[in-house]
């Protein structure tokens, strides 16, 4: 480390370096934070799909069939499962952020507790909506 950061003149030897993110041990808080951003970026594709779905529906049943062909394909179902989790995650963690915005839940203990609660809620909502949905769909 010292060898690598020492220049010929030695002037820059003590300059503090920003370490790569990978050297930090991942914590629940930091992982949940970056996943919030990742789900947000990925949900942009869900927004595009919603837009295409509505546009084809407005164009008529023949065009609407294209959207439904894609959504009911294996790729479509896989995307719907991932989108639903991303949406519940971003929604639940977004509510967590709104509480922080009004100054609630800033202590370390509260941050970890709300993080665990949020993750459980997101996974639970995703699991329940798909489990109940599939059960109702195949029984009726």
């Amino acid at each position: 480390m010292d060898k690598a950061s020492t220049s010929k003149s030695g002037v820059h030897a003590r300059r503090p370096l920003s370490p790569h993110l990978q050297v930090y041990r991942p914590q629940l808080t930091s992982v949940l934070s970056i996943v919030h951003r990742m789900t947000g970026v990925f949900l942009a594709s869900a927004a595009a799909m919603l837009c295409c779905w509505l546009l084809t529906a407005a164009a008529g049943p023949d065009y609407y069939a294209w959207s439904m062909w894609f959504l009911t394909s294996w790729v479509g179902y896989a995307l719907l499962v991932i989108w639903s989790f991303c949406l519940f995650y971003h929604l639940c963690n977004g509510i967590r952020h709104l509480f922080w915005d009004i100054g609630i839940g800033f202590s370390l203990r509260a941050t970890y507790a709300s993080g665990a609660l949020m993750l459980g809620a997101a996974l639970g909502l995703t699991g329940v909506s798909w489990a109940v949905g599939l059960a109702v769909y195949f029984s009726g």
Partner: peptide
């Protein structure tokens, strides 16, 4: 564009 397309589509439907 996507936002306007959504608004138009919902009204049309």
């Amino acid at each position: 564009i996507a936002g306007v397309a959504c608004v138009y589509s919902v009204i049309a439907i």
